[in-house]
Design a protein around this nucleic acid. Structure first.
Lengths: 209, 209
DNA sequence: TTCTATTCGGAACGCGTGTTCTGCTAGGAA
DNA sequence: TTCCTAGCAGAACACGCGTTCCGAATAGAA
C-alpha cells in the first residue's frame, strides 16, 4: 500500500467512492475537482503512475474507462433469479418456464449460480425441509434439470407419497437412496420410477431477521 | 412490452447486453453500430421515445449515461465481505478488525448484508453447527456487535465450556437461553457472564458442490 | 554549486459524443 | 388531391474529455 503519494492515495479513494455512488467511473476533470488538483495533466500524470504500479487499468479508446484492480471498486456480476414459487412437503414443485416472467426476483452472485443457465429460485415454506438444513423462509437456488449425478443435491417429487423433498441422490443397486444433508437423519429408499427430479440445488440462502 | 417498434426493441436488447458485457453503457454511436442503424439522429430519436415511454433514463450532462429502468440492465449493489477465518465448535471465533485486510473475500448482495457496516464472514468447519442449520463449508455472514436483542441469531463464545455456537438469544429471567434454529433440538441455558457475543448472524449461504 | 529526476501548472490540440438542423419518404385522414 | 405526423438520412455544431507540449518549481546526488 506504500509507495503512493498522498495525491495518488486520494485519487484511489475518490475513484472507489465515485464508482460506488454513480455506477460509472469519473472523468479526469471529475477527479481534478474531487481531489482539488490544479490541472488535468497532473491527474493524467498520476493516473499513469497508478496504472504502471498496477492499481488501475484504463481503456484509452473509451472515455471514463478506469477500472480498479484491487476489487473494491469492481462490482461482481450478479444475476437476477426469478422466484417461481414455494417448495413445501405436500405440494408439487413449481415448474420453471425459461421464457416466462415472474414477479419476485432474488439477486445472486455468479458464484451462487455458477454461471449456469435455467436457474430459478424457490422459497421454502414450513419446516419440512429441515433435514436438508433449510428452514421456513429460506431461498433455494436451483438449476432446472431432469437428471443428476450421484451425490448431487436435488429437488425431487415422490409420486406415490406425493411428497416434495431436498436430498442428495445415490443409486444403490436398482434402488434410489435419498440422503439428507444432515447426516444424523435417515435416508429414504425408493424405486427410480417413483422419483421425478425437478432440479439441482446450487445454493441455499438463509436470511435471519 | 408492446407499443415498441422493432428498432426500439433492438436498442433495448442491445443496451442490456452491452451493459452486461462491459460494465458501462454504450455511446450513441456504439448503439448505431450494434443495431445497424444508419444515423446517430435515428438513435437519438428512438432513445428519446424510449425515455418518454419510461424504459430508460438519461443524464444529459454525462456521456454514456443511459440507465435501464426495468432492472435487467441494472447491477444490484454488492459488497465484498472478508472471510476472517473459520468457525468451529472447539476454537474461538476470529475477531474482525475493520481496518485490517483479509485474503479471501465473498461477494454479497446488499440484501444479504442489509446495508450494515462492520460486516464479515466466517467459514463453517465441521458439523458442530448443524443445529443452526449450517453445515461444513457453509459461509456465515456476520455483523460485528457486542450486544443483541432477544430472538436474534448470534455467534457466541461460551467461556466455561470453551465452545463456539450459533444460536438465537433469549433472556429467561436472570439466565440466558440459547435456542437452536432447528426447533427439534434442545436449547442451552447459561449465565450472562459466561456468554461473549461475537456478532450477529445476518445470512448463511450453502454452496452444494 | 551543477545536473538530473520528479512533480506540477497552464494551455492547447484533437477526437469522441450528444445534440440539432434541414430535408426526405411513407402513410393515413380530411 | 392536401395536410399532418412518424420515422429516417446526412451533415454540422458545440462541448466533454483524454492527451500532449512546454516550462517551472523542488529536491536530492555528484
Amino acid at each position: 500500500m506504500k509507495g503512493l503519494s498522498a495525491k495518488q492515495q486520494a485519487i484511489l479513494d475518490f475513484l472507489r467512492q465515485f464508482i460506488r455512488n454513480k455506477d460509472y467511473p469519473p472523468s479526469i476533470r471529475d477527479i481534478q475537482l474531487g481531489c482539488e488538483i490544479s490541472s488535468t495533466s497532473v491527474v493524467d500524470y498520476n493516473l499513469k503512475a497508478l496504472e504502471r504500479l498496477g492499481y488501475i487499468r484504463r481503456d484509452r479508446e473509451v472515455s471514463r474507462a478506469i477500472e480498479m484492480l484491487d476489487g473494491t471498486g469492481r462490482r461482481p456480476h450478479t444475476v437476477p433469479v426469478p422466484i417461481v414459487g414455494t417448495i413445501a412437503a405436500g405440494s408439487p414443485i413449481p415448474v420453471f418456464e425459461p421464457g416466462a416472467s415472474y414477479g419476485e426476483m432474488v439477486d445472486a452472485t455468479e458464484e451462487m449460480t455458477r454461471g449456469k443457465e435455467n436457474v430459478y429460485a424457490l422459497r421454502v415454506k414450513g419446516t419440512s425441509m429441515i433435514d436438508a438444513l433449510v428452514n421456513d423462509g429460506d431461498i433455494v437456488i436451483m438449476e432446472r434439470t431432469n437428471s443428476a449425478d450421484d451425490g448431487e443435491m436435488i429437488a425431487a417429487w415422490l409420486k406415490d407419497e406425493e411428497e416434495t423433498t431436498l436430498k442428495r441422490l445415490y443409486t444403490d443397486g436398482d434402488r434410489i437412496r435419498l440422503q439428507p444433508a444432515n447426516e444424523t437423519m435417515k435416508p429414504i429408499y425408493t424405486r427410480p420410477e417413483n422419483l421425478e427430479i425437478m432440479g439441482r440445488v446450487l445454493t441455499t440462502i438463509s436470511h435471519h431477521h
